[in-house]
Amino acid sequence: MEFLDSEMMKRFMRSAPVNIFFKDTECRYCFASEICNLVSVGENGSIVGKTDLEIQKFPEMGKMYYEDDKKILATGKGSQYISEFPMENGESLYFEIKKSAVRDENGNIIGIVGIVDNVSERVRLEKKVEELSMIDGLTGVYNRNYLKYRVEEKKKKLIFPFTVIISDCNYLKKVNDQYGHEYGDILLKIVAGTLKEEIPEGSSVIRMGGDEFMILGNGIPEEKASELMT
């Protein structure tokens, strides 16, 4: 069996479809197969010998990576997560990061090995599918799935006063019976569009089903809520 020398090994790693990196027990980079423009390489154009605290352009991200490295070195347990990097054009890049502890022949932890994979297209597609699953196909407002999402999502904080308004679309059945369901659909679209135009920014319109709509209002005072209901 022919073994690869260090230079040949580096060439193989630099040609890998994902970014491979190694860190020492001080969380400093020893090797990275690729350096993207999301890190600061400094005057020497290298991240070797530096920690994420020094190279990451987003300080909070660098701190999180560094603390995660310390935890891996202390416990020997690897980690896996997806990081979001907001870009100037309003979009975001998403990178999946997987890290594991490296041990010597005696079981002692001597560093960290990790990979970084650009999963932006996959995450954007997943977000689009998730978004579509929460949109009512007829009216374009949110559906009941969104209500469950809002309740369960801890990241979204309620802004008080918080208002919940439930309403229905008068005479929908009469319109459907007299003119046909296509006109009833038009009526629902008009009502949904009017509600979207009238509610304050940060609030949501949900079609609960049939002719019933719900408004979730962040920061809507009682006076404004009363105005919306008239």
Score class of each variant (00 low, 15 high):
E2K: 10
E7K: 11
M8Q: 09
K10Q: 03
R11P: 04
R11W: 10
P17M: 02
V18N: 01
V18F: 01
I20G: 01
F21L: 06
D24W: 08
T25I: 13
T25L: 09
F31D: 00
C36T: 15
N37W: 06
V39D: 05
S40R: 13
S40I: 11
S40H: 15
V41A: 12
E43T: 06
G49P: 13
K50E: 11
E54C: 08
E60W: 15
M61I: 15
D68C: 15
D69Q: 14
K71P: 11
L73W: 03
G76P: 14
G78N: 11
I82H: 08
E84D: 09
E88V: 06
E88T: 02
N89I: 08
E96N: 14
I97A: 08
S100H: 11
E105F: 05
N106T: 09
G107C: 05
I109M: 09
I110A: 06
G111I: 07
G111M: 07
I112S: 03
G114N: 06
I115M: 10
V116D: 06
V116C: 14
D117E: 09
N118M: 08
V119D: 05
S120H: 01
R122V: 06
V123S: 02
E126T: 06
K127T: 07
K127I: 07
V129T: 05
E130Q: 04
E131Q: 02
E131K: 06
S133G: 00
I135N: 00
I135Y: 03
G140A: 07
N143C: 04
R144I: 13
L147Q: 05
V151Y: 11
E153Y: 13
K154R: 13
K154H: 10
K157D: 02
P161Q: 01
P161I: 03
F162R: 10
F162D: 10
V164A: 05
S167G: 12
S167H: 07
C169W: 11
Y171E: 04
Y171P: 01
Y171G: 02
L172Q: 00
N176C: 12
D177S: 12
Q178Y: 11
Y183F: 08
G184V: 09
G184I: 10
D185L: 08
D185C: 07
L187Q: 08
A192Y: 01
G193M: 09
T194V: 13
T194I: 14
I199G: 00
I199Q: 00
S203A: 05
S203W: 00
S204E: 12
I206R: 02
I206E: 03
I206N: 01
R207A: 09
M208K: 13
G217F: 04
G219Y: 00
G219N: 00
L228F: 01
